[in-house]
Design a protein around this nucleic acid. Structure first.
Lengths: 365, 365
DNA sequence: CTGTTAGCGCCTTCAG
DNA sequence: CTGAAGGCGCTAACAG
């Protein structure tokens, strides 16, 4: 019924082994023979049976890219770049074709593990985990264990946008400097004269959330704002610091709701730093709805510098993450097209992009 | 080295077949036996060999979702919804786990075909093609042929967001009413009093582009604007109609550049309809750069109603496509969780959402 | 309900 | 450079 390698061999008057060799291009075959085989393949419209070849060879050409939210351009950009990098792998002919594939975990620990298992079942050639990781110790341990097994089974593992994990070697990591970027952003706000700065954090148990928040607080502390338990000149105490932080998701509505909450907690705040650009947009919307102007009344800043951020009104001040580049490198690392950085880990810088959504507070201190 | 089903069978003191049966849950097994097997699986930390089982069963649990641009939320939303729908398939226990996976074609015909072949190799359980299709006859034929083969091989094919293809049955289609939505949008513009309306189209050879453009022009023609070859009262001729259409990509920069081009072709235009929301955003940016206000000087409208569109300033008038719902249904259709619509094709409505970016022209006619 | 028996289609030594 | 043979790990009839 379905045409197999044996049929092709028969038509080309060679042995199955020879057909296999020309298809995989990993073994010397006479040019004339190859021609004949290729013609037969074409005439018979033969397609390799993936499972069979994976079974026999004990490897597959599947590369899994795990993302937390596929509808978020942050992940879309990384995944797209990675997939492209993997697809363009220089291959003389066919054979090296990798099937790069993205898996949407939706931020669920369970689904992350499920996908990892499914990928393990498929004997994936590589897996790339992108974006912030869940910080639950149980889950971290489970993921580490799973990745260790994957690695032991020959799949290369690369982490992109999350901190390194303690799981054997052959796990390359590309981290973003969330902390540094966030810190520079808040410093920018402080330099403008802001003292009462609201912070809209992401989901509480994500590495990205924590690191960005840490950077923010480091900047506050350094400036003597909300960094200690005593009021240092009306700039807020540690209690204020907590009061001015609201956690949410990485979605637009979170920014909207959190802003309303922040405003109710402190109607006098003059700036809001958001977990990411999307959330910042939601914050702007809420502010406008309250009759407040951005940036005249309240400054707003985002994070990531997604493509739309330059076009919002006012243009969004944010922190640029080289998402495309990171994704591309992750992809190349995964297929071994690029050699890993020393120490198998590298931190990618995050650069402040000051635009129009931040300005001095109404009544500069 | 690696633990196999035989090892599990030995440890559980049953035959390999029994282990297979409990793992697949598709055959009655005594509760006690199942317990024992499950325990053995756990103790041995066994994971099924996907390729082997796919080979033996001649099917796999891979579902491919093809998208034109993974960084575009339009696709992200559809793909995410589909993947979720596929993942949540009601399954008593394990076994029914499908690996839904998204493949980014980048709008390239070649990569689309490549992915289809790769998926065919894997004996994918289903493939979902999303978004506009390329209209090149050669490519259309190639895709049709490929899909026919896929279908013949048992993988179910569903089209989401593109017109039905002439290729055998078992190819369910969910189309969007781009034409109708676009028409209503332009009618809205006309009703506001606009007569000189610029149109920023998507890539020239995409079904979505064509259908949206057709709707736009149908509205113009109906209103007697640019619909004939003679000037009917200063409202523009067919030549004007062409002159006021610029093609581009579905990206932000395309909207920016096209707007500049439109403005140079007709500085007197009072409205711009864009291929999608992202492009509309770029158009707004270009307009502002030229010192023009939206909507006071020029009205702007998008298409899709992506999440950010409600939050832009001014809020974007657009056409809402139920992306999430469509993706979800496509996913369910793909795994047979929902029965196909009569005729195996259904058109999903597109609703006008009038917001603040459109208003009467400066000097109403 | 459970065990036995054959392959599924391909890759990979090993000879020639 | 090419052919022959064995087995990758699992599932699917059949019997029992």
């Amino acid at each position: 019924m379905t045409v197999t390698l044996v049929d092709v061999a028969a038509r080309a008057r060679v042995s199955p082994a020879t057909v296999s060799r020309v298809l995989n291009g990993n073994y010397p075959v006479a040019a004339a023979t190859r021609e004949r085989v290729l013609r037969a393949v074409d005439e018979l419209d033969y397609v390799l049976n993936g499972p069979a070849s994976s079974l026999a060879a004990a490897t597959s050409d599947l590369v899994g890219i795990l993302v937390n939210d596929i509808a978020d351009p942050f992940f879309g950009i990384i995944a797209g770049a990675a997939q492209t990098a993997i697809g363009e792998r220089v291959t003389g002919r066919a054979g090296g074709e990798k099937l790069a594939v993205v898996c949407n975990t939706g931020g669920s620990a369970e689904r992350e593990l499920t996908f990892l298992t499914l990928l393990q079942r498929q004997r994936a050639a590589a897996v790339i985990l992108t974006g912030g990781a869940l910080e639950d110790p149980r889950h971290t341990a489970a993921v580490s264990a799973k990745l260790a097994k994957l690695a032991a089974g020959g799949t290369s593992v690369v982490l992109c946008g999350r901190p390194p994990l303690p799981c054997g070697p052959s796990t390359v990591t590309l981290t973003f400097d969330h902390r540094g970027g966030s810190r520079r952003l808040t410093e920018h706000l402080i330099a403008l004269g802001h003292r009462r700065i609201g912070y809209i954090a992401g989901p509480p148990d994500r590495t990205t959330t924590r690191q960005r928040l840490e950077g923010h607080r480091a900047a506050l502390a350094w400036a003597g704002i909300g960094g200690s338990d005593v009021d240092e000149g009306g700039h807020g105490t540690a209690a204020d610091r907590e009061r001015l932080t609201v956690y949410g998701s990485y979605e637009r509505c979170s920014g909207f709701d959190a802003t309303l909450e922040l405003l109710s907690r402190d109607p006098g705040l003059t700036a809001i730093a958001a977990a990411n650009d999307t959330v910042a947009l939601g914050a702007c919307a809420a502010l406008r709805e309250q009759g407040l102007r951005v940036p005249e009344d309240v400054s707003v800043a985002g994070f990531d510098d997604l493509p739309f951020s330059a076009d919002t009104v006012p243009a969004l001040t944010t922190v640029r993450l080289p998402l495309h580049m990171a994704g591309r490198r992750a992809g190349r690392l995964a297929v071994g097209a690029e050699k890993p950085p020393p120490g198998e880990a590298e931190t990618i810088g995050a650069e402040l992009v000051a635009r129009a959504s931040t300005a001095p507070p109404p009544r500069a201190v």
